[in-house]
Design a binder for these strands. Structure first.
Lengths: 239, 239
DNA sequence: GCAAGATTGGACTTGACAGTCCAACGAGTG
DNA sequence: CACTCGTTGGACTGTCAAGTCCAATCTTGC
């Protein structure tokens, strides 16, 4: 079970299935996508699914890997050619334009999968986390180039700026897809870029008060949870 | 069907079901949570579910409404008392602390639901969008107070800063839950706060080049999609 | 206390889903 | 050409899920 295609034909079949499954999962979510749906979308047969993926879980893993590779390939490529502010601006503009073209549907495939599957399956979470890591690396690479070109100050914390940028992407995409308004992403990205331009003043001397950064667990007010601790049977890990 | 509880007992039952369902849906996702799961978790009977919620979709809607109200109540309350940088810092610190306590599991209930359900059901999407809107209003209220206290310059674009802040929250939470590292949220929030402190220099005169902001659809490179347009059967709206 | 209506229990129906199985088919190799 | 093994079709099974139904029980207003 779960064998790697040995023939050209087999590889084509496997890929066809993964692509169709990726689309269905993106639209409906993993557990709302049945194998029969995938069969109907591809014209494949049950044996093919079980031959190439072992079981449904294997198919979902393949979908996750596929989406990570796809998004990452495109982002790495787009970011690799960023070496000044104009390039960065174009990169941002491209993302916004894509979201607009989709009517602000869907959002980031990785982000959507991460939100849904991170707490469901540890292996999937790891794959998705690695994808975000690779995405961060691509962003950091671009920032490094900007710094080398004298556009970002030497003292800037590139790691923090990278996280801030990726965070703006994901947050902006989520707000955009929820409100069906690509403008939210535009604003989030503008904010991130402004911060990059300002050199990432995370430690601003202006009038900052000493942070209670390590004063945890005493003054902490309840801001969420409410049902975090309750009697729960916890039966079935996934459907 | 789908009746509002008329008695105290009925209200208690309904609430008990919604809370348990909210937790299960938060852990496994809506379509991976069966009514039998909810029944097992609450000790309720099938008739009760159908009596109070009409069908599964109604239950999910109730869960969404409940989570929106819960998160929003807490956030609105926490943000209402923010009137200087220290307050804001504490607010951020509180969120990070909560995420840490949860081992960076779960993330924001609204964000998770939005990622999963926005493209599934228009009504749910609207509810979630309204929740984000209300959250934005709470943030804007805090920023307004900061501005009134002279901590944010009068010229600052509070709407943009609000979106940037909420975007950082959501993006940071997503990255945190995926990497199981609350530090991601901490960095994202620090970035947002730094931007607020710097007065939200979205339009920085430094050396900005004219933006190709409306040059869409010509130079646009393919940065995602790949299977956005394909033959798809599209059978069943939800499971 | 006593209807009237709200609430509850749980068996039952119907369909869909994941997963199994085996018999064919076909492509590559000697 | 023949053999092998990767590949494919599709019927079949057992389980589980959503939704229905009706009778029993409890609450509340009078």
């Amino acid at each position: 079970m779960s064998s790697i295609p040995a023939t050209k034909q087999g590889r084509a079949t496997r890929e066809r299935i993964v692509r169709a499954a990726a689309e269905l999962v993106g639209e409906r979510g993993a557990s709302a996508t049945s194998l029969d749906d995938v069969i109907a979308a591809t014209g494949a047969s049950k044996s093919q699914l079980y031959h190439y993926f072992g079981d449904k879980h294997g198919l979902v893993q393949a979908v996750v890997d596929y989406q990570c590779a796809t998004v990452l390939g495109l982002q790495a490529h787009a970011l690799a050619s960023v070496s000044d502010w104009d390039d960065l601006e174009r990169w941002a503009q491209t993302m916004v334009a894509i979201v607009e073209d989709q009517g602000a549907h869907g959002g980031c495939p990785i982000g959507t999968l991460a939100a849904a599957l991170s707490d469901t399956d540890e292996r999937l979470r790891t794959s998705l986390s690695e994808a975000f890591q690779a995405w961060s690396d691509a962003i950091r690479g671009a920032l490094l180039r900007l710094r080398d070109n004298g556009l970002i100050s030497t003292g800037a914390d590139l790691d923090a700026l990278t996280t801030i940028t990726l965070s703006a992407i994901q947050g902006g995409l989520l707000l955009s897809k929820t409100s069906r308004d690509a403008g939210q992403l535009r604003i989030a990205l503008d904010g991130a870029i402004a911060q990059l331009r300002s050199g990432g003043t995370v430690a601003d001397p202006t009038d900052r008060a000493p942070r209670p950064r390590a004063a945890r667990s005493s003054t902490r007010a309840p801001v969420r949870s409410a049902e975090t601790r309750a009697a729960r049977p916890r039966k079935k890990p996934r459907r």
